[in-house]
């Protein structure tokens, strides 16, 4: 019985002594704080007036969460379209003329703007229609073995012989804005050339005629380099296709580039 009383008392005393010890520690800390505070007062008095003691980069506590505004900026889905003339380095008889060679593209871009609106990254799906027309009396056709001969048209009065290519695009573009609606855009455009055809329009004995050859062997994937100068109300673009649009097994080799206007 006595043993139990003693053990309970020891336990109570232990925790009480911890409390007392803790109180003594608290008093000591308070006293030390008071000592240092008075030392700080002394030091403060000793600092001469007119002096600055700026050692650190000062944060502006009136403007918190500033990095979020800086970093993320805005994002938007924007449409971008353009129409332009296509030039090529193809040699005769396959000499496409820019007056008869046009392209039209439309991109649905997901744009993310950073850093006060100066830098924008955009990507998204798009489509492009390309028509490359021959001059003179020459016309393209497709032989049974798939080869594409280009020769003077014999079947009537040729109006136009065109190569048509339809592509699905993925442009990956970077834009920089100088402000006031001026800036530039550049980046690659990946093309998935899904369809190609040759169309010859001619008249025969007063009737309008059309011959069409489908699947005329375009290369499935090509990549173009795009540059665009953004002016306030419209843009001027240039696109260069360093890769062969058409399969060189069946076509003569040629490259194309286009220049045009993008209204928005």
């Amino acid at each position: 019985m006595m043993k139990k009383i003693i053990i309970a008392a020891i336990i109570a005393a232990t925790f009480t002594s911890v409390d007392v010890f803790a109180q003594e520690r608290a008093d000591t800390v308070k006293n030390k704080a008071a000592d240092v505070t008075s030392q700080i007062d002394t030091i403060r008095i000793q600092i001469p007036s007119g002096s600055s003691d700026r050692k650190h980069v000062h944060l502006d506590f009136d403007i918190p969460f500033y990095n979020k505004i800086k970093k993320t900026g805005t994002s938007a889905v924007v449409g971008a379209m353009g129409v332009g003339a296509i030039f090529s380095n193809s040699s005769a008889p396959l000499d496409f003329s820019p007056q008869n060679s046009l392209e039209f593209y439309y991109y649905a871009l997901d744009s993310h703007t950073y850093t006060h609106g100066h830098n924008t990254f955009s990507f998204g799906p798009g489509i492009t229609f390309r028509n490359l027309g021959l001059t003179g009396g020459n016309a393209m056709s497709m032989a049974e073995n798939g080869q594409i001969p280009v020769a003077p048209f014999q079947g009537g009065a040729l109006k136009v012989s065109k190569l048509r290519v339809f592509s699905l695009n993925v442009p990956i573009l970077y834009s920089f804005s100088f402000g006031g609606g001026f800036g530039f855009t550049l980046g690659p455009v990946v093309n998935l050339n899904t369809g190609s055809s040759i169309v010859n329009k001619y008249s025969l004995d007063g009737d309008k005629m059309k011959d069409k050859y489908k699947r005329v062997h375009c290369n499935i994937i090509t990549v173009d380099a795009m540059f665009q100068l953004n002016l306030k109300y419209f843009s001027i673009y240039a696109k260069y296709s360093p890769m062969n649009l058409m399969d060189k097994k069946y076509w003569p080799e040629f490259n194309t580039w286009s220049i045009g206007i993008a209204p928005f």
Binding site: I5, I11, A12, D19, A22, A26
Partner: peptide
């Protein structure tokens, strides 16, 4: 015995005096 042990238990639960 019960009172003493209970008192001891209560004292052990007393919060320390450190602020």
């Amino acid at each position: 015995r019960f009172i003493i042990i209970t008192l001891g238990a209560f004292l052990s639960l007393a919060p320390p005096a450190v602020a």
